[in-house]
Design a protein around this nucleic acid. Structure first.
Lengths: 200, 200
DNA sequence: TAGCTTACTAAGCGCTTGCTTAGCCACTGA
DNA sequence: TCAGTGGCTAAGCAAGCGCTTAGTAAGCTA
């Protein structure tokens, strides 16, 4: 867990802050933000309740740090796949494989990213909403490109929603140790998506 | 809102109990179960905080009533579509159209059904987990039937997950008044699913 | 070695939570 | 006519909440 969090939050260098974030990820993803108390987080990180406030100004700031980082990673992943080499179907294969695998491997963080947006303070909400919009646009543009080249046959708007739904919803049901493993799941979903889009 | 709840909960005859459930659906779906207070629910139903306890033994019982009912409806819908007339692709079209449309029309209830399972008392959780399992099995069996008849070409387990993900995830992003309208969205998704499953 | 900073804890404040209690009032049936 | 019943409210309790305060102890700087 701490390993995942360590490479999820490279910017957070203080070991104590990282332990707090790891504990918050565990609890937010399992019980939800509102059902998690600041005492839960601090205790799980091996500290007294007040220690959280040395590193974060509020409980909501911990959520915002987790959510923002997760959204940035997902967007980066989608952008790099869409800008990669190959024709639209090849790039879509990479995009879905990686996006699906990310939501499986990081299902705890992904759950927070997808299901706790409404708990964000409004400034953080705005930041995150922008990242989400950009993510959707990248997917829609790649599908539109495939439609233009005659390799896909579908409505780009609806199909983009469907592709993202498939990937995102993995966070809801995937559990550590589930089969298939994230990458295998990703490539199976990629095949489903390619035929869904009417691709060759 | 009250109309939807009235035909969602036909068994709940008392008008006051129905108003309470309607208020709970609004608040649970918008803010989440844990962020909703019993005072929120009672006040929105135009009553004093204590009135809730005349009709329900606890806040969790209100959630359980909403969740159980929603799960039963979704299962009934899926079962009747799968047992309907026509070959597997025809029945799958009906299933996806109706399941998607239900998650759009009833997106508030669907959100509670899909995202508040962990807040249920364990007895209700068990009931609901069984309904969910049965729902997935029906979809998987229909896909397997289509694979056997040579009309689908995919792995039934993975594909069943994908089909349900598409429908379920609608609850996360759909809002009242969104386009396309529920039935139109449903039939577009049905087409996507048919080609996803490798169907003719 | 004095003075300052950083990371932490023990204690607890003010408030909100789910839920209970005691009682009121309109209605019902005998 | 009047006891009984069902649906409701005003008031409030105990527990738990996010967060603050005051202080300690260890480490750095000069």
């Amino acid at each position: 867990m701490n390993d995942i969090v360590a490479d999820q939050f490279p910017a957070v260098t203080a070991a104590a802050a990282r332990r707090l974030m790891a504990a918050a990820v565990d609890s937010f993803s399992e019980r939800g933000y509102h059902a998690t108390t600041t005492r839960d987080i601090a205790t799980a990180a091996g500290m007294s309740p007040a220690a959280l406030y040395v590193h974060f100004p509020s409980k909501a700031a911990v959520l915002a740090a987790i959510s923002r980082n997760g959204h940035e990673q997902a967007l980066a992943l989608v952008e790099s796949a869409a800008a990669g080499p190959g024709d639209p179907p090849a790039r879509m294969r990479v995009l879905v494989t990686e996006m699906a695998a990310w939501h499986a491997t990081r299902h705890q963080i992904a759950r927070i990213v997808q299901y706790e947006i409404n708990a964000l303070p409004s400034a953080d909400y705005a930041t995150v909403a922008d990242l989400r919009l950009r993510t959707e646009r990248v997917v829609r543009a790649l599908i539109a490109e495939g439609v233009a080249s005659g390799q896909f046959d579908c409505d780009a708007r609806t199909a983009a929603r469907a592709v993202l739904s498939l990937c995102v919803d993995i966070a809801r049901w995937y559990t550590t140790g589930a089969t298939p493993k994230p990458l295998e799941l990703g490539s199976r979903y990629a095949e489903l998506v390619i035929s869904m889009l009417g691709g060759r």
